[in-house]
């Protein structure tokens, strides 16, 4: 069975740190950063990038359309 590896890119300036992507991720890949963006929000980032399978659940539920998702078969 082919293994799948994914990655997400968060537009950290658009992110409002609502946490919904963190909750939606089935692989616990995302967390909110300690750093804040220009608007003062603790944006989302890949805290466990190796676990991402590129399912895009985070991007689908993101209210600010700030997540881009990539996926490769390895």
């Amino acid at each position: 069975m082919a293994k799948v590896k994914g990655a997400v890119v968060v537009d950290t300036e658009q992110c409002k740190g609502c946490d919904l992507c963190v909750v939606a991720c089935p692989s616990d890949v995302l967390s909110l950063s300690k750093e804040a963006n220009a608007k003062g929000y603790n944006y989302s980032f890949m805290s466990s990038p190796d676990d991402c399978v590129g399912c895009a659940a985070c991007a689908y539920v993101c209210p600010d359309a700030c997540i881009t998702v990539y996926k490769v078969k390895i």
């Binding site: 994914g6 890119v9 359309a65 881009t68």
Partner: peptide
């Protein structure tokens, strides 16, 4: 390996936004 490449894109913000 570079995953972040347009060939591997599965979800992006629609240009209609």
């Amino acid at each position: 390996m570079n995953i972040i490449d347009s060939a591997n894109l599965v979800y992006r913000k629609t240009p209609v936004m």
